[in-house]
Design a protein around this nucleic acid. Structure first.
Lengths: 159, 159
DNA sequence: TCAAGCTTGTTGAGACCTCAATCATTCCCG
DNA sequence: CGGGAATGATTGAGGTCTCAACAAGCTTGA
């Protein structure tokens, strides 16, 4: 969509560098995430979202996190996480325990089976990330990507 | 997930700069795309995927593209596009016409109604892209983002 | 010519996500 | 203390996406 009429004169359209950056970012995200999702689904029978949940839990003390804390750390809605953890619980990879101190709260706990599933999936996934992403980037690109990502996250959170 | 045993010694794990870049990219993509999807859904009653389809068609000669060409240009699977165009057709925003020269092929055509829906959605969407993304980036970042995106797309397509 | 194999596109089932509504609990303040 | 607001989390309905299977048409080569 480019500017063609005057009734939107107050909009600052994207210039060509922005246009290119934006489409490039969109396309790159799509192909990359699709590729990683397919790899994980094929080799470890889990979508990337599950993998990320297992990773966060594996890094937490006692392999345990509050649902809300887990959702925040994954930039996920509570609803999305609730559905996902319900499915992970069916697989026996995560268990939920209610918090005696605040009976509204729930703890998500990574089970041994869940840890094993993660350990089995990780090497292939990390290889795929390296092959599809980092093999294309030099150290300056890696640093730039980190900085840009941080800037975006901050910007979006500010509303 | 970090290296903890020796049975995966052949995997080159991410170093801390890569780790940071990767999570930052993941998180930024998630919050950004979620924000844009919500804005479009709320203000124009369409998901971002529909918007992109309408944009491509609006830019094509005769506002018409082959389904496969459209799918490729959107980095979309044919199945995804088929479902999406079916829904767009129900809304009267796109029509499909079969190609007399190759009767397997279909042309997707943007209708006037579809064009109007796009024109109505575009200003708000572009503002949201600027507010959530470009307002946080200086020109060097914009250039870097474009280069990195291109590199990723190339890398992933090479398998 | 014609059958095997590619290409184009669609379909259905099932998985996942969003939104809004809901429930239970805790917090806050008059 | 008590009642309304806020918090933590879940649920169900409905929309979108994936995967695999399919259908139909084109192309090729013996």
């Amino acid at each position: 969509m480019t500017k063609t009429t005057d009734d939107t004169a107050d909009v600052r359209w994207l210039d060509s560098a922005e246009q290119h950056a934006w489409r490039s970012f969109l396309d790159a995200s799509r192909v990359l995430f699709d590729a990683l999702d397919r790899q994980l689904q094929a080799d470890a029978d889990m979508p990337h979202a599950y993998y990320e949940i297992l990773v966060r839990l594996s890094e937490a003390g006692d392999r345990t996190m509050r649902m809300s804390e887990l959702a925040d750390s994954l930039m996920s809605s509570r609803s999305r996480l609730s559905h996902a953890v319900a499915r992970l619980e069916e697989r026996g990879w995560v268990r939920r325990r209610s918090d005696p101190a605040d009976r509204r709260g729930q703890w998500a706990v990574l089970t041994d089976t869940g840890y094993e599933a993660l350990a089995a999936a990780a090497p292939g996934h990390v290889c795929a990330v390296r092959r599809n992403l980092f093999d294309a980037l030099d150290p300056a690109d890696v640093a730039a990507l980190g900085r840009i990502g941080d800037a975006i996250r901050t910007q979006v959170s500010r509303g």
